[in-house]
Write a protein that binds this DNA or RNA. Structure first.
Length: 137
DNA sequence: GCCAACGTTGGC
DNA sequence: GCCAACGTTGGC
């Protein structure tokens, strides 16, 4: 069981859109970065991930579950990149903002802060627990 | 294979 | 809207 964080700009794909697909999940496509791709390939069915809104909000708004492991991204004509299927699990009672994460010393080494441009990131079990608590779960 | 130029991302 | 960080491209 591993934990992850995926980022999306709400203007292109938001949490509410993810929730709307809750029953059958939705392909998480469009990753065009090799580090992010590497993380996608490590995801296992049943793993959980934070859903982060970049630019607008800059906060973690909920949790998604990986329901299908990596396969070729249908939106990539070169066939080099992969995607996974995610379904919305549950929303945070209180969104956890980037500011709040930065203020929490125990989370200072999160990839979210260190590699802000990476769109698929690994989260440690300790970071996961802390952020869930901050989110009211 | 190096590196400058350029494009994109995302926080501020 | 600016700019820093980073990835990609293309000339040499």
């Amino acid at each position: 069981m591993a934990y992850w964080l995926v980022k999306s700009e709400p203007s292109s794909w938001s949490w509410s859109q993810q929730v709307a697909k809750a029953a059958k999940g939705e392909a998480w496509t469009g990753v065009r970065n090799h580090t992010a791709k590497l993380n996608l390939t490590k995801m296992k069915k049943g793993d959980q991930a934070f859903f982060y809104h970049s630019n607008e909000g800059k906060e973690i708004v909920g949790i998604v579950e990986i329901i299908r492991e990596h396969y070729p991204d249908p939106s990539d004509p070169s066939g080099k990149f992969v995607c996974v299927d995610l379904k919305a699990d549950k929303p945070f009672k209180t969104p956890v903002t980037l500011v709040a994460i930065k203020e929490e010393k125990a989370l200072a080494d999160m990839e979210l802060i260190k590699f802000s441009r990476l769109s698929v990131q690994h989260v440690t079990a300790d970071q996961w627990k802390r952020i869930c608590k901050m989110g009211g779960l």
